[in-house]
Design a protein around this nucleic acid. Sequence first.
DNA 1: AGCCGTTATATGGATATGCGTATAACGGAG
DNA 2: CTCCGTTATACGCATATCCATATAACGGCT
Lengths: 116, 116
Amino acid sequence: MKGPVAIDLKPRLVKGGERALGPGKADLLDLIESTGSISAAARKLNMSYSRAWALVDAMNRAFKTPLVEAAPGGKAGGGARVTETGRIVVKRYRVLQARLDKHAAPFLEEFAALLK
Amino acid sequence: MKGPVAIDLKPRLVKGGERALGPGKADLLDLIESTGSISAAARKLNMSYSRAWALVDAMNRAFKTPLVEAAPGGKAGGGARVTETGRIVVKRYRVLQARLDKHAAPFLEEFAALLK
DNA sequence: AGCCGTTATATGGATATGCGTATAACGGAG
DNA sequence: CTCCGTTATACGCATATCCATATAACGGCT
């Protein structure tokens, strides 16, 4: 009789109280890279463009080198690309996520046995 | 230069969408154990009693065995005690926290070098 | 020049979260 | 039997968060 049990790990990189990187921003970066635009990525995430833009802005302000470069106008109305730094940051964040998940797994089983 | 940088790890045990255990609940359990009451623990955490009680209730509903047993009335007006299961759960949660922190540390340094 | 989809930005409103407050019940102590 | 501090619970309000919407600027295409 136990529902879905999980250990929710959402590692967030924070700099001076500001959230520089987290699971939502990492997903957004992946989709910006594959779609080539902030708005297309936002649509795929069922996220408002204004929120997506705010996340991109927060990342770019937090890091020395911007993770996303965007420009309006042009053949497709504009677009955005993930920089080399952005790709590296996402890749390392995914490794961190995987590593933490791996180490949390045994605890999950342990706790699950105690839950209803 | 760079403000305080950290990787925020708040492992949350979730059961069917409900949050069964997290950093706040763990701290609350510790203080209930040392103070012997929910309200005293809430005061030390600058938390409203109603919130503290809601957290305790959520924990007790999520686990097979209650983590806190409380009763009104009595010499001190009432009180609460952490059960053996509760003590075990907190202890293991602390171990989980420490382990995750340890594995996240190298990533923290790595990311910090890229932040403003 | 006009069209188009995107970037960039501001603003008001819905929704959730947590708090303060109020109230009742409880049971040992004086 | 009254007093006291706590447990247990409900309700309205403040606050934060997020979203939908609106608007302007941009630049390659046709």
